[in-house]
Amino acid sequence: MSEPMVKAESVHKRFGRLEVLKGVSLEIESGQVVCIIGPSGSGKSTFLRCINHLEKIDAGRLWVDGELVGYRQAGDKLYELRDSEICEDRAEIGMVFQSFNLFGHMTALENVIEAPVHVKKIRKRDAVAQGKVLLGRVGLGDKVDAYPAQLSGGQQQRVAIARALAMTPKLMLFDEPTSALDPELVGEVLDVMKSLAFDFKTTMIVVTHEMGFAREAADRVLMMDDGRIIEEGSPEHFFQAPTEERTKQFLSAIL
């Protein structure tokens, strides 16, 4: 029995006096695609950011690929990881943001090869070759030299996905990847994500409101509300017979 890719045990997170995560527990197997839905402020994005230690958790335990996130345990003592160790862990987890966050002073290709060259220390020539393949895969083989400002939102988000993939991550986190897009551009990004799920068996955690994507690509759907997971199941379960009243309310509001 292999370790789950992500395991959370009663994860808590506070911002000042506001408790955003109030005990999140879950296990995600390698190769699974999990969608997290829920109203804004329910803690979905925060939970995602905890997984790659962009946020520090206050209580509970979080493992990625069998290793504790942000800490090392020796006996019953926890030691904070050094910055360089945190960076190494983050390098293996890809993240795609709602607002793309492409590096504005770099072309699409430069965005994609930046981390492979400077973090993984891959030879630039190899990184460029790999970067072009990746940009081709997300359908942007002809936009290699374009700056982010010259690309549409959907194109920018696809570059961002290629940039994350360039680090050959074992886990991909998507934080509302299509929420900032014009409606007609959502499809192209979802198509790339579906191909990751079906053709490459990438482990993915997707915070999204795109129920169509969830139905097609997700193995599981989690519903979060008020800092907790209140319901989970297959996409069919959510479409046909959600049990919780809050889930029914939420789904009827977004569908």
């Binding site: 960076c87 862990d89 987890i93 590096f103 504005g104 930046e114 973090v119």
Partner: peptide
Amino acid sequence: VPEGQSQAAQSLGMSRLLTMRRIVLPQ
């Protein structure tokens, strides 16, 4: 420089110093 730029750099495993030198200062 928007916060998202350094977050994206961090999520790629770039260190604080590398982020400053390669991503934040040029912009």
